[in-house]
Nucleic acid binder design. Structure first.
Lengths: 217, 217, 217, 217
DNA sequence: AATGAATGAGTATTCATTCAT
DNA sequence: CATGAATGAATACTCATTCAT
């Protein structure tokens, strides 16, 4: 009892308050929804309203737009990573696991990453690196299995899949994405068919890694 | 061809002055470049500056952003239509013509249509209908030939190709697209491989027409 | 002396707790430093941070900015009064005592009073009257001695000295005052030379008392 | 003279419109008044209102607060320079000319320079250098004449006078300066008396040039 | 017709102050 | 008592659009 109290007092970061944590979660959730729907330029006041907090509360949690975007980006990546892990764990067929991940990632609105990554924010932040490394290694594993099974053409790399996946699932700005999804899954399916071995054409350029994307975005 | 179409769209009534016409062309050209590079939200003053005219001149030619966007959309579509016509005329192999068109359309920045179409503008305008009908029928012809030749899977429609094409070539907001292109052509190639007959999987949803897109955007 | 005066000013009623008193002192000290350095507009949160307390604690001790400013003003005046008392007690030469006080008051940042007095706060508060009366009578005594000794021109009053002293030592907003001090003491010295008898010119206006300043500020 | 200098500062390129020039003048005039009265932090909207223009017009003429402050600073310096020129031209007695300039500069609110110089703005701008060089050389000339005539003590430099002058005439924030002026001229007179030869005391520190001030401010 | 200038409405951001733990 | 969190009101700044030359 005494030691616990002393430890709490001596800690420099004294355990965030429960309601503040709840607010933070609600803000991130609201931001994710609105970024996906309207792009990363949405007014902060709208995000705050949707989250049910005052606008200044948002600034208490995230010093600027960049910080909020980063948090949402990491959150989306993490959710996609979870999907990748499930696909790896639960799917028997190697290419089937890849398919499952791609469609699941689409449902997690991974396409929203594109416009968000393009905005001004610190692309060197460790949280971001961590989230990217995680998703990258998981997708690499998915692709490696499919390649080993002879189901995936050999001239594609992680970056190829991730960028195309992001682009094909990228929301149309200003539109509710409701009936767009049905098309998206068709396009993904077609793209996946193009990924299958044997290769039906020779690809231009060189295989893209996530590193290349970091340079560009 | 494109100039003819554009001329038809201009006011036929009071015989436009030569310098006014030149200004109009320069504005559309500047807008196309900037829309592609920065998205359709670019400040009007910047477009005017790039075009080398005063901002009010821009308003003289285009009552609002919607009108300018529409003009640019039509212009991009027209240029893509030209590419489709050339592919039809000059390419022997049916699927090869389709491939050629897809890559050429990418170079014409057809991906910029997506964010532009999403903005608020009158999607019922006759100019737009005309340009869309033109590109649609041309692409349909390209696809029909490939299908007839047994090179194209039978469960895809024009809308599938056009939307995926737009999405895959869509510029990343805020970034010079320079080194992005090399990836884009890879993705297009993979997608085209997925379009080839025989179909490697069953597609979800139903084949998309351009009509469906009009509803959505 | 200053602690005694400060203690008298605190609520005598409910017997304040020891840590609360310590907090109050730390807040006043922090506020004095920051007012001098950045002016009286500094964010309350910053003062609280420098004092090492939460912002709400600050409000517990001082209902609003006016109250805090008043406390700091009194504190600065008290410290200057102490200097005046020492000069009176320890300095043999009458004008030398005046000189010593002026330079010592400058080092106590008495110039910070000007911007602080200008802000909105209750200039009728008894604490303020008390502190002002104290410094005024002390400076009057210093001047009276010098005048009696024939060292001080006869057409100047306390207000003349106090205002000029405050103005000449007033910090430049936004700048660390480090190397400014060396100039300040030169200016004070020149002003003091102008105060010496015999008068070298006829002064415009009338001799200023501290009462006049109260009206104005 | 001042108009000439101001004209030189304007863009030589596109020939400014008449009404725009009038607006610019009104904005600078309004800003000068309000900076003197309330300090350089006054809301831009208030300046615009006083100038009788919309707030955005203010931004058209001055990209940010720094630019407006710079213009006002130059304007105040130019007006003081004019006073120095008149004193040099019209006053027979050397020290009399210096006295006249000092009091006239006070009436031109030269004290407002202090808080304005402290704000964030580009202290390297050529306009500023020009205005400072002008006032500096004029005051140097005034002081040189008085020194040559044996009327000015030899251990003071331009910076000593300019800083003390600015400080002594510096407006009290938040107060209309109406009845403050009568005191100011007394203080200036006392300071001037202290400047007269023969020196009545030895000055601490070293003579200040305007260069030193540039470093500090 | 063409243009530079003016404007008001909208957004981001800060900060004093109140509230809940 | 002490505190971190929440909030709304204020301000800076941008940009589409209209006005005057």
């Amino acid at each position: 009892m005494v030691t616990a109290a002393a430890a709490e007092r001596s800690r420099p970061v004294p355990r965030p308050r429960a309601d503040a944590l709840r607010n933070r979660e609600r803000i991130v959730a609201a931001a994710r929804e609105m970024f996906v729907e309207f792009g990363p330029e949405v007014p902060f006041d709208e995000i705050a309203r949707r989250a049910g907090v005052g606008n200044a509360t948002l600034y208490r949690h995230f010093a600027d737009r960049a910080e909020l975007i980063r948090e949402v980006v990491c959150s989306v990546m993490d959710r996609a990573s979870e999907q990748a892990e499930r696909a790896l764990a639960e799917e028997g067929d190697a290419f089937g696991a890849l398919r499952r991940f791609v469609h699941a990632a689409a449902d997690e609105r991974i396409g929203a990453l594109c416009p968000m990554l393009a905005g001004d924010f610190d692309k060197e932040h460790p949280d971001l690196d961590e989230a990217r490394d995680r998703i990258e290694s998981l997708v690499e594993e998915l692709m490696a299995r499919a390649r080993t099974a002879g189901q995936l053409r050999t001239d594609v790399a992680v970056g190829d899949l991730m960028v195309a996946l992001s682009q094909l699932t990228r929301p149309l700005p200003g539109s509710g994405c409701v009936n767009f999804d049905q098309f998206v899954h068709r396009h993904l399916q077609l793209f996946l068919d193009g990924l299958q071995a044997p290769a039906r054409s020779e690809l231009p350029g060189t295989a893209a890694t996530l590193e290349d994307l970091r340079q560009r975005a």
